[in-house]
Design a protein around this nucleic acid. Sequence first.
RNA 1: GCCGAAAUGGCGGAAUUGGUAGACGCACCGGACUCAAAAUCCGGCGAGGCUCAAACCUCGUAAGGGUUCGACUCCCUUUUUCGGCACCA
Length: 860
Amino acid sequence: MKYNFTDIERKWQEYWEVNQTFRTPDLDDLDKSMPKYYVLDMFPYPSGEGLHVGHPEGYTATDIVARFKRMKGFNVMHPIGWDAFGLSTEQYAIKTGVHPKIRTEECISKFRQQLKSLGFSYDWQREVGTSNEDYYKWTQWMFLKIYNSFYDEKENKAKPIEELDIPNGFSEKEKYEFVNSKRLAYLADVPVNWCPELGTVLSNEEVPEQIEKGFSVIKRNMRQWNLRITKYADRLLNDLEDLDWPKNVKDIQRNWIGKSEGATVVFEIKDNKGEFRKVEIYTTRPDTIYGATYLILAPEHKLVREITDVENSDKVESYLEKATRKSDLERTELSKEKSGVFTGAYAVNPLSRTEIPVLVADYVLASYGTGAIMGVPGHDERDSEFARKLSLPIIPVVLPEGLSEEQKAEFIEKTSTGEECFTGEGISINSEMINGLKTPEAISKVIQWLVKNENGKETVNFKLRDWLFSRQRFWGEPFPIIHFEDGTFKALAEDSLPLKLPEGVSYKPSGTGESPLAGIADWVNTIDPVTGLEVKRETNTMPQWAGSCWYFLRFLDPKNEKTFCDKKLEEFWMPVDLYIGGQEHSVLHLIYARFWYKILYDLGYVSHTEPFTKLFNQGMILGEDGVKMSKSRGNVINPDDVVREFGADSMRLFEMFMGPLEATKPWSTKGIEGLNRFLRRTWRLVIDEDTGELNKKIVEDHDDVLIIKLLNKTIKKVTDDIEDGDMKFNTAISYLMIFVNELYKVEKFSREAIEKFILLLSPFAPHISEELWSRLGNSPSIQNVPWPSYDPELVKEDVVTLVFQVNGKIRSKQEMEFDTDEKALEDAALDNENVKKHILGKQIVKIITVKNKMVNIVVK
RNA sequence: GCCGAAAUGGCGGAAUUGGUAGACGCACCGGACUCAAAAUCCGGCGAGGCUCAAACCUCGUAAGGGUUCGACUCCCUUUUUCGGCACCA
């Protein structure tokens, strides 16, 4: 009777389903004396392609941990669902005419069946999909909560909009505008990233990915919904500190948030009517202010036209025109050659009182800081390049420390000509008020002066921008917002949710840059139930990221109709203990979800500040040829084929054996054959293939001491490898292999040894383990059996191999009893023939002895 | 350009409070079983030297240097690969 993985896997998958083996009990039925463990996968987007081999990699890892924790007695939460709204389904719909809803259901069925075929221990009762009405009802509800909140700067948290202080004496209209200007979700006419091929806007976070796919992205002014994520920049940054996340993901998020500390400084400019205007600039180096030889405004800066004089007006206008026509991409790409024009105006340096020219240049971004900078060409690379191009003067104001008089003179000479540009910290020179001060002191002295003279202040800036939250799509959550004819708008009442997508109608693009929903008159035109007025619905939809911001909460209470998640359940299960997914979500999902969660926290709906305690990124699986799998290369491995040919257990085992989880590694068909061979060997260890009976080598009485010791070591190794959180299951599997190899070498082994081994194997290869477990006469499921423990005494070695070195070179090895004392080790080393040969006629300088390891004899 | 990670046999990868480099698997080679093949089982397998053989010797963890009795492991320099950012003042 051979190892028939197809039958075995089908049999046990059915068993698990029928018996609801992996169902997580309701809160009241849990054993509260045991800790909880929430292990989560990044839920998949169910595309038409079906699962690829990359999906099972992370899913197998979480499944191993989930099964292990259950056997350890933890209360385990291990759910799965679908990130079901999204662009590619909609594009498929446009191409084929199949409604996105139907298409989504088809794809989900396929995914579900594929995931089940791999034997993952999900609690399928908790399955959720973001495009289900009873799910997106709560996404909309949360949007309303965000919309109806403002950020209290004093308490540093979001609060309900009702608690907002409205200044006295405002008219109704002013009140309305004031409140809208404070909401955490707001409509604004802002320059957005428009992608013509997709026919929608994109958030800043989404742009790089789409450009990589070959799509173009242009800046365009559009009235769009935004979420005020920038209010949370500091908290998103600081709270990263305590998370058990990969360092690089934290770095990527820190970088994206991009905090910089500096100062804003006010300069006076004479405008083209001869009046004085104030302009604020931002700098991280206020100590270099004496070296500012010009001032630059971004082309979009409000003051540009006001200060440009008649003489320079044509030149400036044409420059502005060119700049607006460039896309962001062009503007950065063409930036190798800096450009700019003089406005004719001069600004006064508030400290040195010197007059410096004001220019317009597109290397200054309107969207960062104040949209204006002071040009310090001696100490900023970009300013240096610009100054050299336009022959602007350069004044050195920072001297590196530790230079000789001669070097100083050379430094000043080279800096003045633009040959050198020193951007580091040093000592201020040519800077009246701060001469001789080191950079940090110089900075604080300048800031003090600015504050005292009301000429500026210390300022913090972030690269992070508000989250552009609307898309011109059909297949997403509609905004529960209605627009009145007079241009005002308001939110729908919470009890009117969900606001459903129209069914059975056109979802094709409108062609006007508006959402397809705009073309569905029946849906768009409606009556406000409160005022009875004719209104139009908001036609944009939310981005795909909305639903994934909180799905991990819905898993805890998927059927609740009264709330998105019962507070008690949230308190018990959150935060997620282990979250595994791809690195592509380092910004995007992982920053949006943290932000969303913090709002829910501020408003009192969740009880923790961060949703994911430990994050782990699985690496990519490459094709057999060592490059990324792609259809065009024809190197795609289909998991269905693998399961059919080798079985789910072999696939799971192989994906874990390939290397550490986070590594990028190539697929290997020969490699999976090896793991299949291992399982067949394991099978034959238990089952006599000729008779189908148990192997005669299995006996009831005890093993020899070597097998017992090896078993204990194997238990320790496998347990440690799963528990330490490094996700290096390859070494655990290699120990399982060693154990099997050893059992092949002995005449007999005990039932206990093989049973414990099967328990160790079960999280990795659950089907064969269940089968062998029950064939050994035990009752299923193996999931309910406690994880084996080891005896620390039996893990210790009896004999160790000592290494004898002479001058650090290995000259001999010798087996000796564990814990033999140093003196005996030395004697043994000195008595060794080969060692003697190498120290003959030489003088022993010293002997270094490390217990149970080595003896090194140093000779001269 | 800046930030981060990595580089070990023919291949995937083990080994770090500094102490036997190459566990385990793949590929390959040899043997057993077989009429034969597959499957299976047993053994070998970093490079080179010496040898009938064993023993033994030299080199070897991207490259170069350093610290140390001893370095894949720590420090410095360089190269390459991957990921992120890219006029953020």
